[in-house]
């Protein structure tokens, strides 16, 4: 698959991805490949790898294949697999780690999720609270897909009519939680 190859090349220059994956591997080491996670997942129908298969690849250290798949980005954190895994593994949390591993790599197949979360978090940094309309407009602008906002336009109008969201221009400034965010970034970048 062209996408997988493209992604693999990109990851080849990032050896630290393999290192981070080792931590995630430790979280799921006791997996017995029973498939309960797959059978419990409401999003499995849309995934390219089943959750069980993805954990197998994590255990084998196949970083490129894991990150090239959409499986972890399709997790909606319902915690059903975590609840049911017979080995009691923290699967939803491990998927969160995979999302964190993928985020800074800007993988093309994960773009919409990346942009959504980045704009959301940026809104939090600046205002302390999320301004729903502001971050949605930034998200739409950066997706550069003119059809996308139309899918939400009807809903947006209904929300505006009820005064639930207001049109807001993105505000500037260092931000209400900037110090806290800087500190967290500094702590996470320590060797």
């Amino acid at each position: 698959m062209a996408l997988a190859e493209e992604t693999a090349i990109e990851l080849g220059t990032m050896p630290e991805a393999a290192e981070a994956l080792a931590e995630i591997r430790a979280m799921v080491q006791p997996c017995i490949q029973c498939g309960t996670c797959t059978g419990s997942c409401p999003n499995e129908f849309a995934m390219d790898l089943t959750p069980r298969h993805m954990w197998r690849l994590v255990l084998l250290g196949r970083t490129e294949d894991v990150l090239a798949s959409r499986t972890f980005s399709l997790c909606s954190a319902c915690y059903m697999c975590t609840l049911r895994c017979p080995r009691g593994l923290p699967l939803t949390e491990a998927i969160g780690r995979l999302k964190q591993l993928a985020a800074p790599r800007h993988l093309p197949h994960l773009r919409s999720g990346d942009l959504f979360y980045r704009n959301f978090i940026d809104s939090v940094r600046r205002h302390g609270r999320v301004r729903e309309m502001e971050f949605m407009s930034l998200y739409f602008a950066q997706m550069m897909n003119p059809w996308l906002p139309l899918r939400y336009a009807g809903m947006g109008m209904r929300l505006m009519r009820r005064g639930k969201v207001a049109l807001q221009l993105p505000s500037r400034g260092s931000g209400r939680l900037a110090k806290l965010f800087e500190k967290v970034a500094e702590m996470e970048n320590r060797p």
Binding site: A77, Q100, Y117
Partner: peptide
């Protein structure tokens, strides 16, 4: 919300 988890574990 669900966004911090996709970005940073500590956050």
């Amino acid at each position: 919300a669900s966004a911090a988890e996709a970005v940073s574990e500590l956050l």
